[in-house]
C-alpha cells in the first residue's frame, strides 16, 4: 500500500508528511519548498506503508518541472491512496484538484488543513455535507499542531474510488461546471 500526499503548493503537505512518518523534511512558509518528492514509511495496523510527499501542483495539467514530477508520481502509482491536502481558507480551488484526482479513479481522502486559518477568516465548512456530496472522507486538520492527523489515518479505510459522474454539482447548489470553467 502506498499513500500519496497531494495538494496545492504551500498547503502543508510536508508538515503532514513529517507528522505521519516522523521524518524531518524541511517545511517553510513558501510555495515550492518541495520540488522533488520525499519517500517515508509509517506503520498502519502493524504493516509498513509507504508515504510520498509529492510537490505541490495546481492541477493535473503540469506547467513546470515540479508539477511534472507530481503528475508523473500520481500516474505511476495507480492503486495508491491519495490524501488530498487542501487549504481550508482556499477550499474551492483545492477541490478542483481533488476532483481531478478523483476523476482518475484514485481512492481519495480530503484533509482540510489549516482549519485554524479558515476560522480566523470566519470561514466555516460543513464537512459532513461535503463528504455526502463528494462521497469521500473529509477531515479537518491543523497539521502543524498535530490536530486531526490520526483521524485522517483512521478514515483511510473509508477512501475508495468514486465515479465523479455521480457527483452532481447541482446537489451542491453550484450552477456552473467547476471542471472546465464554463457556465
Amino acid at each position: 500500500m502506498k499513500i500519496l500526499l497531494m495538494g496545492h503548493p504551500n498547503v502543508g503537505k510536508s508538515v503532514f508528511f513529517n507528522r505521519l512518518t516522523g521524518a524531518n523534511v524541511i517545511e517553510s512558509n513558501y510555495s515550492g519548498t518541495t520540488v522533488d518528492y520525499t519517500r517515508g514509511y509509517m506503520s498502519l495496523d502493524g504493516k509498513e506503508v509507504e508515504v510520498v510527499d509529492v510537490p505541490g501542483t495546481f492541477s493535473l495539467d503540469p506547467k513546470d518541472r515540479a508539477e511534472e514530477v507530481a503528475v508523473a508520481m500520481l500516474k505511476e502509482a495507480k492503486d495508491a491512496y491519495v490524501i488530498c491536502v487542501i487549504d481550508s481558507s482556499k477550499l474551492e480551488r483545492g477541490l478542483y484538484l481533488a476532483l481531478q484526482i478523483m476523476e482518475e479513479g484514485y481512492s481519495v481522502i480530503i484533509a482540510l488543513n489549516m482549519d485554524d486559518v479558515a476560522e480566523d477568516k470566519n470561514i466555516k465548512i460543513d464537512n459532513q455535507k461535503l463528504e455526502q456530496v463528494l462521497g469521500v472522507p473529509v477531515v479537518s486538520t491543523i497539521a502543524i499542531e498535530n490536530i486531526g492527523i490520526s483521524k485522517v489515518i483512521s478514515r483511510l479505510k473509508d477512501a475508495k474510488p468514486v465515479d465523479v459522474e455521480d457527483i452532481t454539482v447541482m446537489r451542491a447548489g453550484m450552477n456552473h461546471c467547476g471542471r472546465c470553467g464554463r457556465t
Binding site: 496545492h8 495546481f58 492541477s59 495539467d61 480551488r93 478542483y96 484538484l97
Partner: peptide, 13 residues
C-alpha cells in the same frame, strides 16, 4: 490559459 488558471481559482463568472 483556461485550464491553467482554473486550478488557481480563476474561472469565468
Amino acid at each position: 490559459l483556461l485550464r491553467q488558471v482554473a486550478g488557481m481559482g480563476v474561472r469565468i463568472g
